[in-house]
């Protein structure tokens, strides 16, 4: 059983206050940054695989 605390608030947060935390521009920027990093990672993995394949072919061709 997980332990927990219960706190009671008298008031709800106002809609205006909540809206002040909104940052759609920041969200899109973070999304683009993450997407770029993902693409970069995928490209690096592809390059490494390609290099590994080429090396494998090279050693196989020189060993005979």
């Amino acid at each position: 059983m997980t332990k927990h605390d219960i706190r009671i608030r008298r008031n709800k947060l106002s809609s205006r206050k909540i809206q002040s935390f909104k940052d759609y521009k920041g969200l899109m920027q973070a999304h683009r940054k993450k997407r770029k990093a993902k693409t970069l990672r995928a490209t690096l993995v592809m390059l490494l695989l390609l290099m590994f394949t080429l090396l494998l072919f090279y050693f196989r061709s020189t060993s005979f």
């Binding site: 997980t2 332990k3 927990h4 605390d5 219960i6 706190r7 009671i8 608030r9 008298r10 008031n11 709800k12």
Partner: peptide
Amino acid sequence: KRLVFSLEESMLYEILEVYDEDYFGEEDI
């Protein structure tokens, strides 16, 4: 950390209403 539930007092009355509509007062919170 310990889990926290930060609940609005007014909403707690709604749960209490399921039990009995007229019975509960502030001290029951």
